[in-house]
Design a protein around this nucleic acid. Structure first.
Lengths: 214, 214
DNA sequence: CGACGTGTTGAAGTCCCTCAAGCCTGGTGG
DNA sequence: CCACCAGGCTTGAGGGACTTCAACACGTCG
């Protein structure tokens, strides 16, 4: 499936359960006036069970990159889960992971500023990647526009916040979708909403003002 | 358990799984500088499985009202779920409901304005209440402060938005925690972010200005 | 090459937050 | 029974962070 492709409701009725093999899939909500928001990101290994949810106002499943997915028939899924405790445990834990990730994400959106949300997202990326590579290298698997919709901000703000972190030598870009975290502790503090860090970051400006006032 | 009571990490290690019988439980995240946000609300019937999540930075479980809950031992839970397909289905569907509710909530927080978020919350209340009473009567089971933390706004803004809806005869309060929805279609449009509604609502002001200008 | 979509800057506006004060309600004790 | 108190809710003015709008770079694909 190509980027931008959607899974239609008819397909969902026929195959409401599937798993992601590769790529990034999104659950998008569209408001009346065109505002778009991405409610969740599904990545390889995630199991999606939309039984009984197709008709509702739950939004659409849209691919954010080229994806491959593995369809499961509800009957086969139920049978597997009932017979195989191991499979059941995997499915349960995956769904549980999705739940708490969505709740964490909601908390991030609720009371965090733009830079803080971006910092949290970078950690979410490092936590979710399957291959256990170096923890300071991050690959951003989606476009800036989609990232903005996921974090509840504008593409412009995303750009400005990345620049903000880059200027302060906290991250360094390698191309458009890869970056290194140069200062993990500071980024962590920002993600946790530590205003102390904010003060540190503003030190230069403050001394500037202080000098100007003398 | 009284309002304000928390479930400690030690208790969670001993009893990581439980179900809510009555009351409202919240999952709260606390930022370094004191900002608080409520990541999720758990209501009667919800099953909470925190296995393996206690140590992490997942926040705390805090009661928002007097609650009673039913502890389950992991072993017993697993055994029940493996033996009884019906129980398994109930647990799975409950967790699935929590997941999609959290995702919807995240989408609401991402790209909605204050009044729109409040309207969505009112519908979430009507959808979640167990007794199938009249659909236009809503009981708000939590305080304004907690509602603000859940919706990512300030208590003041919550108050202002309620007044806004009340002034326009869209809702009518019966006491502090009960209200009637007088105009369900309009409230629905607001919840869906329809700017047309916004224009309708502003009509009076506009004519006012127009007259004032002539 | 030119067109398109995406990402980045810059200035003006708006919604919400912050702070401060007043009001109301429910619980407590005399 | 009523005064009192404390916590929560409401209201008002001022400031800040993000959005909006517009224009410009950049890479890709036809």
């Amino acid at each position: 499936m190509k980027r931008g492709g959607t899974i239609s409701n008819q397909e969902l009725l026929a195959w409401p359960i599937f798993a992601i093999s590769a790529g990034v899939l999104s659950l998008q909500h569209l408001l009346e006036d065109g505002r778009k928001s991405i409610a969740a990101l599904f990545m390889p290994g995630d199991i999606i069970d939309m039984r009984g949810l197709t008709g509702r106002n739950r939004g659409q499943l849209i691919a954010l990159s080229k994806i491959t997915l593995c369809r499961l028939s509800p009957a086969a899924f139920e049978a597997t889960v009932e017979d195989n405790p191991e499979a059941q445990r995997i499915a349960w834990n995956n769904l549980r992971g999705q739940t708490y990730r969505a709740m964490d994400h909601a908390a991030d959106l609720a009371k965090k500023q733009a830079v803080e949300k971006l910092a949290s997202f970078l950690f979410e990326c490092t936590n979710r990647k399957l291959d256990q590579g170096p923890r300071d290298q991050v690959h951003i698997p989606i476009r800036r526009i989609d990232l903005a919709d996921y974090l509840g901000m504008q593409p412009e703000t995303v750009s400005r916040c990345f620049k903000y972190l880059e200027d302060r030598k906290i991250i360094a870009f390698q191309g458009i979708s890869n970056l290194n975290i140069l200062d993990i502790p500071t980024l962590r503090r920002i993600a946790n909403g530590d205003k102390q860090t904010e003060n540190l970051r503003n030190t230069n400006d403050n001394t500037f003002k202080a000098i100007a006032n003398t």
